[in-house]
Simulated assay, not measured.
Amino acid sequence: MSDHYQLIQECIDRAIAAEQARSRFRRSLHDTLPNLHRSIQLPQRDAPLHITCFVIRYIQVIPAWLQRLDQLCDAGGLDFHPVRELILHSFSEIPERQPHEHGLGSILDEAYLAHRTMEEINDVLQPICGTPLLPMDPMVANLVVRELLGETLACQLDDLSDLLMRRFEPAEMDPGRLVSMILYKQRYDDAPGEWPDFANHMQIELRMPALNRQADLSH
């Protein structure tokens, strides 16, 4: 792992260690979970523990996923530097901003920004490549984290992700570069377990009201 992503990894490791030592994030969820949108369905037993495990997995994958996206963009001749630098900066300033409260709660907004940006880059490049660069579907996971952050903060982070995408602006790609990127991507297609559906694995689901109404009518 490169130095850039190693710094992010170390920040994540500190946050997880802080949660394991104090369980501050898990305790805070007893007040937060009753306010989640009713479409988010959680396991009935120890929902705070399930959400905490989900958040840890959501955060843990960021360095590896970002680095792979960085490598794929490099193979395609795309400049990933603005994305990497802003996300790295957002993680690296956390201990200075909250030196006594560094934990999952203090890192969740940075994690959401990273995931949303990866999701957007995936969406932008998929029509060019004919296939997603990263074989993941983070929609449900991002919606759950959005609820945990609150609408105001989530909207601010969405705006920042949009700003990153405007700076990213992939132009029409050289055919040779495009082939190089697709070939590079194939290295990851044989390891689906590295791209988990966090929400599904933790029994967290979205149930839309229309589906609920249909279910009610069937009984």
Rank of each mutant, 00 (worst) to 15 (best):
L42K: 00
T32V: 12
V145Q: 01
P63A: 10
R116A: 12
C129I: 03
D109G: 07
G130N: 10
D74L: 14
P170H: 07
I94C: 06
S2R: 07
I87Q: 00
G103E: 02
K185V: 01
H81F: 09
D3G: 03
H201M: 09
A199L: 04
L149H: 05
L108D: 04
R213M: 06
R84E: 14
Q186L: 15
Y188P: 01
A15V: 00
H89L: 15
Y112S: 02
I128D: 15
Q44M: 15
G176F: 12
I62P: 00
I56S: 08
S106R: 03
D46A: 14
S161M: 03
P127N: 13
L160I: 07
E120S: 11
N142R: 10
G105M: 07
D197V: 01
R14G: 03
R68I: 09
L78W: 01
D189L: 10
Q6I: 01
A199W: 04
E10R: 05
H201C: 07
P82I: 04
R26S: 06
R116L: 14
P135M: 03
L29S: 00
L206W: 04
N122K: 06
N35V: 06
V61K: 11
P99C: 03
P82F: 05
H102V: 11
I182A: 10
R24H: 13
C155Q: 15
L211W: 13
L113C: 02
V83M: 13
C129D: 04
L7V: 05
P34V: 00
D3T: 11
A75Y: 03
H219E: 09
M139T: 10
W65A: 08
I182C: 12
E85A: 13
D158Q: 12
T117A: 06
Q156H: 12
A114I: 00
L88M: 10
I121H: 00
D79K: 12
L133W: 09
L113F: 10
Y184N: 15
C155M: 14
L183H: 13
R68S: 06
L163V: 04
E96M: 07
C73H: 04
F25E: 02
M181K: 07
L42W: 05
E101H: 15
N142S: 05
S218A: 15
H50T: 05
G130E: 02
N200R: 15
Q20D: 15
S106F: 11
D123Y: 08
H201N: 08
R167Y: 09
R22V: 06
P63D: 08
S90C: 14
A47P: 09
R84L: 15
A17H: 13
E19N: 01
L36V: 04
A111G: 08
C73M: 09
Q44V: 08
D174I: 08
P132E: 01
R146W: 08
D79M: 14
I107W: 12
S161W: 04
L113E: 00
E169C: 06
P127R: 13
A154E: 01
N122A: 02
G130C: 07
R38N: 07
I56A: 09
Q126P: 01
P99F: 05
L217C: 05
D159Y: 11
